[in-house]
Every structure is written in C-alpha cells, then in structure tokens.
Design a protein around this nucleic acid. Structure first.
Lengths: 323, 323
DNA sequence: ACATATGCCGTAAACGTTTACATTCACTGC
DNA sequence: GCAGTGAATGTAAACGTTTACGGCATATGT
C-alpha cells in the first residue's frame, strides 16, 4: 500500500542508500541519478515514514506546545504564531491543553517528551525547579514566564503597565483600580510589581481590587469591587476580564467611558469589535509565538538561554475618557 | 542517556520481549515477573520510544487535526473537545492551522499523513472528491461539512435557523435580514438552504444582506447593509460577525435591541460577556470535537461512515427584543 | 605507467519496539 | 511412565530510515 524507499530504489535501479541521499540532497550523488530518483519518487507518490526517520535520527519533525487554555484567545494567537514559524521549518506542532492545571501539565510534559524533544511551555504553572531540570535535558522555551537559565519570550509587562497608567493619569483619573488575574500566573505578579514601582502624581492613588478568575463571575466581582471602591478607572489583568467588567458595568447602569474608564491587556481580536471598543495594551501575541518557535528551531534555546522581551503598545480606543 | 527496553530487561534479568509484554499487559507473563519488570521500569524512568513503537505497529499515538483558524473561538473550542477525548485514549492532537486556504489545507494533509493515519478535518475547503479519496485510504472524520460516504459531525443548522426565525417572528419582527458568511463555507450554504425552506408568516419577509468575511470590515458592511435595507432584526452567520455588526450599529447610534435585534450563531464564550449579551444559537462546540475524536478512536469512522448531527439550542439574551 | 585522489554508489549496521514462533518446563490424564 | 497440554519465556525477524564504511571506477599528478 504505502511506498517505501525500497520500492523507489527498485524502480530507479539503485540502492536505497542512494535514494535516501538523492532525496535528502546530501552526500554525493550524480546529478542525473538524483533527477531520476526524484522523478520516480514523485510518480510513485513516495512519502517518507517519519517514525522510521525519527527512530534513526533521534530528532522528530514536531515540537510540543503546552498551553493552559486553547479557548483563551491569547494562547490561540500564540499557538498560531508558533505554527507559522514551525511550518516554515517543516515542523508540526503538537498542542496539549492543560486546563490550567499543574498536574495535567506535568503529565502532558512527560507524555510529550516521548514524542518530541523540543518543547514550548506557555505560562507554565509548575515549579521553577521542575522547569530548570526539564531544560537541562531538553530544548525548552518559556512563554509568559521567566526562569533563570531558561530561554523565554514575554511581553513587556512593565512598559504596558506604565503606558496604561500614564494614559489614565493624563486623562485626569485619580482613583485607579487594578483588577488582578489568577495568583498562579507569573504575568499577573510581574504586572503587579510593575504597578508597585510606578511613580504616581501625589494626587493619584492606586487601589488593589483583588485577584479574579478569568470568567464571567470574575468580571462581575471585579466590576462590583471597583464600584464599591469608587474608582473612576479600572485596569484589568487581561482583555477577557475587562470584557466581563465592561458587561457588568453596563448591566449596573454605569456608562463606559463617561462614568468609568476601562483598560485591558493583550488586545485580543474581539477587543476592537466591542462597543465601546476596548482601550488595551497590544501584546504581539503571534510574534511571541514565532519568536519562541524560532529560538527552539535554530537551537539558540539550549546553547545560550536568553529572555526575550517584546515591545507592547497601548491602543487607545473608546473605553477610556477624561475624568 | 535515555533508557530503553534492553536496559530494563538486563536489570530485571529477563528478555526484552518479556519486558514489552509485561508493560503492555498482553500475552502471558507470570504475575511476579510482571511486577518486578514494572518496578524496574519505574525506577529506571523508562519511557517508551514512540517512534519505534509506531514504526512496528504502524499506528501512531497522535491524531491529526486540520482547522481553518485557531483564533476563531469556534475551532478553538472544537479543538479542546478533541483533546479531551484524545487524552482519554492516551493520544495527542497534532494541530495544523490552514489560514482558511485550500492549498495550505492540501499541503497540511499530505504532511500530516506521514505522521498520523487518523485525521479530523474541520470545515475543509477542498473538494468532495479529494475528501472521499482521502477517506478511502485513511480514517477521516469531518466537522461542519457533510460528504457522502464519509463520517462527519455537524451542528443542526436547520434547527438553529428555525429557532432563530421562530424567536424573531414571535417577537413581531417582519423585516429580517440574514448576513451570510464566506461562500466557501459549507455551514453557510447549509444555513442558507434552511432559511429558504422556512415557513414564514405572510406578513414577514426575509432579506438577504449578502455574504461577508468574518472580520471587523465584514461586520461593518453587514450592519450598514441591514440599516440600508431597513430591517428590524439581523441574523448573523456566526457570533464573530454578529459582534462586528453590534459594534457598527452602536457606532451609528442605533440601539440594540430597542431599534434592531441581533442574533448570532455558535455561542462562543464572549457572547455572554458582551453588553448587550448576544442572543445566539448555542452549538455544542466542545462536544462536536469529542464526538469526532470518538468516532476516529473507536474505529467507527471507517467501518460505517455516518453523519452525526448534534442538537443546538437558541440562547435568548439581551440583543433581541419585541418590535 | 603508476600511485593517488576523488566522485559515485552499494553494503550493512543501527535506531527501539512488537510479535510470530520456538523452546522449556511443569502438570494433567490415561 | 508417557503423550499431550498450556503457561512462561526467549529468539529473532520485521518495521523504514539514515549513515559510516568500503569498493570501484575514473580522473589527476608525477
């Protein structure tokens, strides 16, 4: 049924070694022979058996990608970026969704390592030690998390927070609430520390509205907390939380942006579709994916671990207004 | 570095065949031996080489998934469902995003077939003939497309359209516009034909607003077309298009649902987060994925091709109101 | 003309499994 | 006591590739 090297070799009248060399364009093989082999392979519809290839070379044609949640547009975009870069290198992506669960993640990693030796971990929830140990034996690149001695690609959280705060203070907001994300999220703590070191005008104060799950209920709770605290602007951990906040505010008769301004983070595709469209920090999600995959593919990940920080840019839309 | 069957066999004092049998729990092996082998394998940290396994068994540990766009929440959810089911069977999903391009799709299929022999095609854009030919030689399940003699899983488009129309006519709408999706989409044409056979009250008429790309611009154009046509309700091909329409209507000062009602299709996660929250046909996206993966895994896909139609249910929210 | 280099190609080993077949051994029933 | 049975294990082939090695030409240098 399936055509192998042997059959191509027979038809072309050469040995399988020559066929292999001709197709891989490696070693020395006469131009005429190469052409003939190529032609035969094509007409026979030869497709190399990747399992056999991987068995002997030890290096597979796929990279593993572990993400917390495919339904989260952020990770969907990151995954897309990884695919672009991987496809350019003739690789596939094996994606595993962990449902944001550390145990699932551990299991997924173990499973994937029997199939691939190159791994991209997006927002891993497991411990630093585990990650470092993993990185010692395999090619690993992290997304949205920094761990010493391991390659990573992240958005510039500090800059994003600063741009948001500058925007809001410039608009005259003096009571600004921050609705945080899951405590297990590295991005969340990174953004919180950036908040802590921002140089506020003396008249302005930042109010911590707490940490919320990324869900409808989380958005409702965050919005209610913001209203209770009397803030005039809410910065959300990410766009999905901001969406929930937007919905709840409208539900409670509070106008955005006239009464309260809302700023998101990430700039997921729907952010610009909303009414009001969401002011948010645009994170180059796809490019994060491409960069991470690039590190893995060109082997830089192992040889010289490096943390890459990509620029972010505030997109001012209609969910923010002067106070 | 990596531990193989041989090393486990040596340490356990048996042959590799026995180790293989003990671990796979197949054939007959003494209980005491099995235990010892298992223990040794565990302490040595044995991880089977999947490439070798696949090479000899011919069946891999992964299924291929081809989707038009990961960033589309519909497919992200479907992919998640597939993962659930696949994980339960110890399988991985190799996902390829084709950017909704038939050529990319053809290439992706060819590529994937050298790695997997089981394939799920979501909304394939390639021809029926190609699909049927593919299904002859491999296990294939289609999502959101029906092709004779090939297994498929789809949402009940007819029912969804009927529920939407019934809802709108019951609310007193007499000029209802339909904003269609890409012409290449099977779902789109399926929904259109359902529209054509609906039994309208004589006072009501349906207005075709045309076909639109799923983008910001598409939503704008569709909304403008609806306004120009003077409709009081717009049914959108899917939620993303509905989102764009919602945004444009608000932008033009038209209130939803007071002036115009809007109905979506799919019920993607953000639909309920919006203000106004979107009335839409809930398609069991995750379950579609699970079902498709199930067909592939239990081998039903090949032996008895069957089209599975899953129930959909209109979710009435606040984007629709009486006229 | 002979030694040497070089280009082309075939032989064969290796990758780590699974599994058909062979072997051993103890036990059963007569 | 002996053929027959069946359970437990070992032997070895096979899966389809890549690649080190060696052989055989032919070209090159003296």
């Amino acid at each position: 049924m399936t055509v192998t090297l042997r059959e191509v070799a027979e038809v072309a009248g050469v040995s399988i070694a020559t066929v292999s060399r001709a197709l891989a364009d490696v070693g020395s093989v006469a131009a005429e022979t190469r052409q003939r082999v190529r032609r035969v392979a094509k007409t026979l519809g030869y497709q190399p058996n990747q399992a056999a290839r991987q068995l002997v070379t030890g290096r597979g044609q796929a990279i593993g990608l572990i993400i917390p949640d495919l339904q989260n547009p952020f990770y969907a975009s990151v995954a897309k970026g990884i695919q672009y870069r991987a496809r350019a290198a003739g690789l596939h992506a094996i994606i595993v969704d962990t449902d944001d669960n550390a145990d699932n993640e551990r299991f997924a990693i173990a499973q994937l390592l029997s199939v691939v030796d190159r791994l991209i971990l997006a927002s891993p929830r497991i411990g630093e030690g585990e990650i470092q140990q993993l990185a010692e034996h395999h090619s690993v690149v992290l997304i949205n998390r920094e761990v010493p001695a391991v390659s990573s690609v992240v958005g510039d959280n500090r800059s994003g927070i600063e741009q948001s705060l500058s925007h809001l203070t410039a608009l005259g907001h003096q009571a600004i609430g921050y609705a945080g994300g899951p405590k297990t999220s590295w991005s969340n703590t990174d953004r919180r520390t950036a908040l802590g070191t921002f140089d506020f005008p003396t008249s302005t104060h930042l109010i911590d509205l707490g940490s919320y799950r990324i869900s409808k209920a989380g958005g409702v709770a965050a919005a209610d907390a913001g209203i209770a605290a009397g803030v005039t602007a809410i910065m959300a951990f990410n766009d999905q939380l901001a969406l929930g906040i937007l919905g709840r505010l409208t539900e409670r008769g509070i106008r955005v942006p006239q009464d309260v301004s809302v700023v998101g983070f990430d700039d997921i595709p729907v952010a610009r579709l909303l009414a009001p469209s969401l002011t948010t920090v645009a994170v180059p999600m796809t490019r994060i994916g491409e960069t991470a995959a690039g590190l893995l593919i060109n082997g830089k990940a192992l040889s010289a671990p490096k943390s890459t920080v990509l620029d972010v840019e505030l997109q001012v839309r209609s969910s923010t207004a002067p106070q």
